[in-house]
Design a binder for these strands. Structure first.
Lengths: 179, 179
DNA sequence: CTTGTCATGTAATAGGTTACATGATTCC
DNA sequence: GGAATCATGTAACCTATTACATGACAAG
């Protein structure tokens, strides 16, 4: 149930509506625990029925906007969960399957396409992370919370950089083998 | 539908039964596309109904063992898929959520537990990959197929190594901040 | 008064996990 | 004959995705 706890974390940082949460997820926690707005609404309903959060209809806002806030019970539950251990979620990487398929199928089977595509997307993501690094963490004293957030970002930076390296290595290898 | 194509790949390497596939998955393709035996049986049924594989009951074997083999149609389909491109499956890493939660909850919230646990499991996996590296790829000429398989393994080696580094960095940071 | 955006959802489907069921064969 | 293991599955459930629905308000 990591989504529940990701939402609690995000709501503790700042109470907000479901759609706001969805938007914030897209550019922070969602990088390593993605969630669509539909899923977030469903999960918020669950959190509220568990008594971990409350929602208050915002007066004067458009539509039927509700602002969610974490209750003490929710904070306690998050504390419990943080101290827990868990099996890492297993990797699922179709590119690796493609490379194995390329191995068994023989020369120029086409895995080079996905290698190129992935190279581009990982470069893009790396650039995004570097932008965030410059914007939020560069050249100043960091609080405890910020240092931890920076660590998470660094994990992303390293991951993207090694993916890029792998793609380049793969492209060079296929080029050498099949030219 | 990557599982389907992972199974086709594995069956091209060597035709076998569902349970054999499940066992081989556990120590090769399953590292980056895990699948339980239940799921594999279901998917094999689908592959057969699509005409991509055939199964033959093995005479003299125990139970109702069936051996699966890839048909030309299946090989063609695999070729089509290999040349395809695909969005990388999004990361889902609860440890990162825990670190963000630790950031918002304050000192000694307990993320250190999962950092330690993950450090241990990643070290174990790295050791396993290194063992495979020594056993299958060390100190000899590699065929084209083997070089590609080695590339996939190297991706795993790098990934585990960076996870280990991240855990150690996180532990050092929390130790410094909260001692 | 129509188009766009904000805001919240529903329904169908896909993909996978967990727990359990079942029968055959081998080993002792 | 009983236990272990081989081999194939079923059923219930969970998580998440995709496509679509609905209503309110804001801007032109």
């Amino acid at each position: 149930m990591s989504l529940a706890h990701a939402l609690l974390t995000s709501l503790l940082e700042k109470p907000c509506s479901g759609l706001d949460l969805a938007r914030r997820f897209q550019r922070s926690i969602g990088f390593f625990w993605p969630a669509s707005h539909q899923l977030i609404y469903k999960e918020l309903g669950k959190l509220e029925s568990l008594g971990w959060v409350v929602s208050v209809a915002e007066e004067g806002a458009r539509g039927r906007k509700r602002v969610y806030q974490v209750l003490p019970t929710g904070r306690t539950e998050l504390l419990r969960w943080v101290a827990d251990t868990e099996e890492p979620t297993p990797l699922r990487d179709a590119l690796m399957v493609r490379l194995r398929a390329e191995a068994v199928l023989g020369a120029n089977s086409g895995a080079v396409n996905d290698l190129n595509y992935r190279l581009a997307t990982h470069k893009q993501k790396l650039a995004l992370y570097q932008e965030i690094e410059q914007r939020d963490f560069a050249g100043r004293e960091l609080s405890r919370a910020e240092q931890l957030q920076y660590l998470v970002l660094q994990s992303g930076l390293v991951a993207e950089a090694s993916q890029i390296e792998l793609c380049e290595k793969g492209l060079a290898l296929l080029n050498k083998l099949d030219s």
